[in-house]
Each structure stands twice: as structure tokens, then as C-alpha cells.
Design a protein around this nucleic acid. Structure first.
Length: 624
RNA sequence: GCCCCCUUAGCUCAGUGGAUCAGAGCGGCGCCCUUCUAAGGCGACGGUCGGUGGUUCGAAUCCACCAGGGGGUACCA
């Protein structure tokens, strides 16, 4: 179905051409701010005023008559208002049937992108596999998962990868704790929670006994060697935590196509190969003196032969021979774009779970051609890692992969912090009166993702019909809470706000959907009459929201902006609730045509709400 | 020091290709449940969009400077 707003924009461009305007014109069509003048408005006349050297109002009149001579499909009245706005009123009677029938047939692709086809790899979550996931990790996963769903709804081929950093310091820390602190898992304590506790303890011990840091260094070295008992234990620890994370994330509707293991990148020689390549191309150098003596570094600028000082280079391999995360990330991204010339083996992580990379060809189960080979990469990583992400891109560029460097997109988002109240509730000293307090796994100050989901479930349990409904409702509430903020907003986490069930919440959206389902259950399906009865104002608002859906999906997907979809869905649910409150009970409506129209709108709202909820990873509920 | 982000109603946040854009939710106030789900709807109250300048016919939105807050700038990630 053609898109009405686009049609209006195109018609305006044609009209401008009739007035003798050549070249690019931006019609600037928006929903009318004043409903009395129309449904869509354009400020084109203002923009043409300086070109045509006529008053905007005159130009608007000329545009309007050109539009009236040659109207588009579903165009109603064309008016001119204000100092020169051209307004279009929708012909609701003609638009209604096509909007409704389109809504009843949303497929996997809601809003096809003509440019889709190339593969997009979305990397998200990448939580250190050493402790329980907290609400900050959950924000990452919800953003990434929704972006992946949005891209698929545009017709892109998407592969979701979860990078498992199982050879980093955080895993080493918990391993040190497990092996040297003698802590025991408590009765009923989940393993990931237990490891969180060990992590906090070990971090405290480092402070008290700096000599313990030697244990960490040694552990890290053994992990990176990939041989021996310690390396095995690290793999075992990471595996158990990854299982816990997958379970947590699945509660929130988040799933992955592939787990990519850092240990495999090392074991299969990806890192060595990438480093050798960068040495050969003189992308990285080893300063003989100065701050970075004995490290392999990526110089940030041309220093004219001088040795780089702090801030002038990024270390990829430390002087002790251990690679930094950025070093490993370069190797990973060379593979991701299919540039490395080496590949993993692939098998299933669990029978129904995601695929995983493997360093053991003997256990390979899956076709390697399916994975990697990205044309475009979207990395969902919080804003604090902007600098390292730039380094990865810069390394690709200097190896001669300019187009891949440009196709690597760091989707940066702000962190979740604690509101002063939440911080107090978690026992943080807030006497310094800061505006927010950071989450800290290291200090044990965080909101566990599972705990939050559990708490949300308790909140809705008594009103939900069963346990499954309660858990889906809870997941919806949490997911929507984490998605409705813009990516540049720090979420000042507050329990009351996150667990609220009224107003601008996931529960409200689910309720609207379930309400539509309950209404439909009482009505026989019925074809729309050829001649539609007039639509009430609330119905017109609803129809306009329904008409807009594919456009919103396109904008949210192309702009990698889940919050756009969140605010749209709220507007749609509000329009539907408004329609519901201001229309007579449909099953009591005698007029057959009126009932058919109402049923059609409710069904379209139901289908569109369901699709919007799915795109946000929320399971649409037929009944609550 | 340098770089990035934020500052909009009492609170939490949308809105930033200029115009018809001062919006939502929460809280507080007043209404609406014999009738498809009231986790809903309606009404009133509430903001000189951090400040100052600039560009423009027109700025919450663009530019400059300033203030406050957060983050980065590590041989952590």
C-alpha cells in the first residue's frame, strides 16, 4: 500500500515542478499541529518563497490548486492556512479499508527497505561472564535485541552475536576468588549470584592486600595460554555464567544467533594473525622508549618518528605480552567482516539454544558459511567505550579497509545509574547528594536483572490470570521501561518508576492489546461495506496512528532508535483506548455497517499493537 | 587541559531536517465503573525549554560563549 505522507510529499514536489521549481525541494510534510486545517501539513511554500520571490501565501495557493488538479490516492480536501501552509485532509472513507486490510497482514517484513539484502551483524549484550547480569546489561540487551528486530522488519539479513569475553581480567578475578578465598555457594543461591558475591569479595581483598594482584596477573597469563587447569577452570566458569545470562536474557525475550568466544579467537590464532598483519603493515609499532616502551601500540597521529606519550597511542599488546581488549576486538572485527582469512568451527551451544564458535574442528556441526561475513556491523556498547571503538575502526582503516571501517557502527547508549532514592535503598551513602550513583558490580551496588524481573512479577501477580501471564507482563514492563528512554539519556533507575503498572508503561500497552482481543472475541467477523459510514474523531485519530506504523518502523530501524517505536506504541495504545472509551459497545451496535467498521478498526489496532510489541520483544497477551 | 553527552512542568522523560510545537506519564485536585477488561477515560492546575548573545520573517531545535551535571582521555574494559 502506498504511504500517504510520502504520497503527499511527492505530490508537493510535482506541484512545485509545475510552478517552475527545479532541483531538490524538501516538502517537509508533518502531521498537522492544528487538526482543524487538515491531517498533514507542509511548509514547502515558506521554503520556496526566497526562490520564487513571491509571498509564501501566494505560493501555497498555487501549490494547492496544482494538488487539486492532480490529487493522489486517498487525498481529501486540500487547504491553505496561516501564512502559507498547505494542508491535506485524508479521505477517511477510502483510506480505511486499505489501512485495515494492510494491518491484518503484517508479515515478517513490515516496511521493506529497497536497499536491504546485505548482511548486518548486530553485536550486543557482551556481558563479562563472571557474575550475574544487572539492569545495565539488560538495557544493552533490550536495545540490541530491538534494533535487530527492527532491522529484520526492514528486510535486512541480521545475525545477532553475543561476544563472550572469557579471557579478560574480570573472569580472572572471580577465578582468583573461587580458588583462594574459600567462599561457598549458599543454599538456594544461584551460581551467577554466588559469583557476583565472590567478585565483590575479591575486589575488596585486592585493596587490602595488593599482593593478591600478582595472583590475578598469573591467572590471566594462564588463561591466555589456553593450556592447563586454570584455563580449563576459566572456561568452565564462563560457560556456567553464560548459561545463566542466556536464561536471564530469555526471560526478557532476548535471543542470539551466535556466541563468539574470545578464547577461541586466541586459541585459533586470530589474535596472533591480526597482530602480525598489523606489524607487517606498520599499523602498530613498538616504542623503544617513553611511556609505552615494549608495548605494541596504535599511534593516534603521525608523530614524525617521535615516541608516543600518554594520550598519543592506544595499547593493543601490553609490555607483559598480554593483549588488551581492544587488540582482541580488532582481530574479532577482521573476522566479522570476513577479512581475516581464518574461521571458527561452529556448533550448537545447547540443543535449542544459539550457535557458538568453537576451536575444535572435530565437534563442528554447522556450516561456517552461515556466520560472519558482515557487510555492516552494529555494535551496541555503552558510550564509555566510544574511544576504544574508534580505535577498532581506525585499525581497520589503516589496514586498508576503508569501506568496512565506515560500515562499523558503534551504537552508543548511556548507562543505567541509580537515582538517589534507589541508591539509598541499596545501602549507598548518599550524603554527598549527587544527582545519581553509578552501578558497580565491583562494589556489589547494582540491581540484578533477574531480581528486577522477579520484583516486577510480584507487582503484577495478583491481577494476572496465571503465572505465565504474570511473567510476560513483568518482562513487558521491564523491557518497555528500558526502551522508552532515548539512547543519550542516562536512566536514573528508580524502583517505583520501573515497577509502575499504569500510564506510560509496558503493562498499559499489553492491556490495550488484550482489550482489543476481548472485544473481537464477542464479534463475528464481517466484511467492510462498500459504502463506509462516517468516522468519529477518535476513530480518525486511531486510523492515522495505524497508517503511520510502517513509517515509524522505517525511521526507528534506519535511525537505530528503539525509543521511537516505544513512543509510537504508546500513542497507538492511547488512541485505541480513547476510541474504546468513546465508542458505543460494539456488540450492542445495531447498524451492521457501523459495527463492521468498528470491528475492522479494533482488529487493525490489535494486529498493529501486536506487531509493535513483538518488535520491542514483548509477547502480546490476548488476555490478562 | 582536550573530546563527547546531558540541562524542557514538583518528579521521570518525549519532542531537536525552523513555522500550526510547549507535549506525555507520575504526583496533587475534581469527575466517570448495573453495559466488550477502570492496570482505563475525562477535566482543571502546572513550564519565560539552564544562561547570555548571534543568524532568521520565524529558534526548545542552528551557531558562539558561559554555568551546572555525567562520561572519556589507563600497559582496565
Amino acid at each position: 500500500m502506498p504511504d500517504l505522507q510520502d504520497d503527499f510529499a511527492r505530490a508537493l514536489v510535482r506541484a512545485a515542478a509545475e510552478l517552475g521549481v527545479t532541483g531538490e525541494v524538501e516538502p517537509g510534510v508533518e502531521a498537522s499541529a492544528v487538526p482543524e486545517v487538515g491531517d498533514y501539513s507542509s511548509a514547502l511554500a515558506f521554503r520556496l518563497a526566497s526562490v520564487l520571490r513571491r509571498p509564501p501565501r501566494t505560493i501555497a495557493e498555487e501549490l494547492a490548486s496544482a494538488l487539486r488538479r492532480n490529487p493522489g490516492q486517498h487525498f481529501g480536501e486540500v487547504t491553505v492556512s496561516g501564512a502559507g501552509y498547505v494542508n491535506l485532509r485524508i479521505d477517511y472513507a477510502s483510506l480505511c479499508p486499505s489501512v485495515i486490510s494492510r494491518a491484518l497482514h503484517w508479515g515478517a517484513v513490515v516496511s521493506p527497505d529497497p536497499a536491504a539484502g546485505a548482511k548486518v551483524v548486530v553485536e550486543h549484550t557482551a556481558t563479562n561472564p563472571n557474575k550475574a547480569a544487572h539492569v545495565g546489561h539488560l538495557r544493552n540487551a533490550c536495545i540490541g535485541d530491538t534494533v535487530a528486530r527492527l532491522l529484520r522488519a526492514r528486510g535486512h539479513r541480521v545475525e545477532v552475536q553475543n561476544y563472550i569475553d572469557d579471557t579478560g581480567v574480570q573472569v580472572a578475578d572471580v577465578l582468583v576468588g573461587l580458588r583462594h578465598l574459600g567462599l561457598a555457594q549458599r543454599e538456594g543461591e544461584p551460581y551467577d549470584r554466588f559469583c557476583s558475591r565472590v567478585y565483590v569479595e575479591v575486589c575488596q581483598r585486592y585493596e587490602a592486600e595488593p599482593s593478591m594482584l600478582e595472583l590475578r596477573r598469573d591467572t590471566l597469563r594462564q588463561i591466555e595460554s589456553r593450556r592447563g587447569e586454570v584455563a580449563e577452570a576459566a572456561k568452565e566458569l564462563a560457560s556456567r555464567i553464560v548459561d545463566a545470562h542466556l536464561l536471564t536474557m530469555s526471560r526478557a525475550g532476548v535471543a542470539y544467533d551466535l556466541l563468539t568466544w574470545e578464547s577461541d579467537i586466541i586459541e585459533l590464532g586470530f589474535l596472533e594473525h591480526a597482530l602480525a598483519w598489523m606489524r607487517q603493515e606498520a599499523v602498530i609499532t613498538m616504542p623503544q622508549a617513553g611511556t609505552f616502551r615494549g608495548c605494541w601500540v596504535l599511534p593516534l597521529e603521525d608523530l614524525g618518528g617521535a615516541e608516543p606519550e600518554a594520550g598519543e597511542a592506544k595499547v593493543l599488546v601490553k609490555s607483559d605480552g598480554i593483549a588488551t581488549y581492544t587488540g582482541k576486538d580488532v582481530a574479532y572485527h577482521l573476522w566479522k567482516f570476513g577479512l581475516l582469512g581464518l574461521d571458527f568451527s561452529y556448533r550448537l551451544w545447547s540443543p535449542q539454544g544459539p550457535a557458538t564458535t568453537s576451536a575444535d574442528p572435530g565437534r563442528a556441526q554447522l556450516d561456517p558459511a552461515r556466520y560472519g561475513h558482515a557487510a555492516r556491523a552494529v555494535n551496541v556498547i555503552d558510550q564509555r567505550q566510544s574511544a576504544p571503538q574508534r580505535m577498532v575502526r581506525e585499525a581497520l582503516r589503516r589496514l586498508g579497509f576503508e569501506s568496512q571501517a565506515q560500515s562499523l557502527h558503534h551504537l552508543a547508549y548511556e548507562v543505567v545509574a541509580l537515582s538517589p532514592r534507589a541508591a539509598r535503598e541499596l545501602g549507598v551513602d548518599t550524603s554527598d547528594e549527587r544527582s545519581m550513583y553509578p552501578l558497580s558490580g565491583r562494589r556489589g551496588v547494582d540491581v540484578g536483572a533477574d531480581d528486577l524481573l522477579d520484583e516486577a512479577e510480584r507487582q503484577v501477580r495478583d491481577k494476572a490470570r496465571d503465572q505465565l501471564t504474570a511473567s510476560r507482563l513483568a518482562a513487558s514492563a521491564v523491557r518497555y521501561y528500558l526502551l522508552r528512554f532515548g539512547l543519550n539519556s542516562i536512566i536514573s533507575f528508580d524502583f517505583n518508576e520501573a515497577l509502575r503498572t499504569s500510564g506510560d508503561t509496558g503493562v498499559y500497552l499489553q492491556y490495550a492489546h488484550a482489550r482489543a482481543c476481548r472485544i473481537l472475541a464477542r464479534l463475528e467477523p464481517q466484511p467492510l461495506p462498500a459504502q463506509l459510514p462516517p468516522l468519529e474523531p477518535a476513530g480518525r485519530v486511531l486510523l492515522r496512528q495505524l497508517e503511520r506504523f510502517p513509517r515509524v518502523v522505517a525511521e526507528a530501524a534506519d535511525g537505530l532508535s528503539p525509543s521511537l517505536l516505544a513512543s509510537y506504541t504508546l500513542a497507538l495504545a492511547t488512541a485505541f483506548n480513547d476510541f474504546y472509551e468513546h465508542s458505543p459497545r460494539l456488540y450492542q451496535v445495531r447498524d451492521r455497517d457501523l459495527r463492521a467498521l468498528g470491528r475492522g478498526l479494533v482488529d487493525a489496532a490489535r494486529a498493529t499493537l501486536a506487531r509493535a510489541l513483538e518488535l520491542m520483544g514483548m509477547h502480546p497477551l490476548d488476555r490478562i
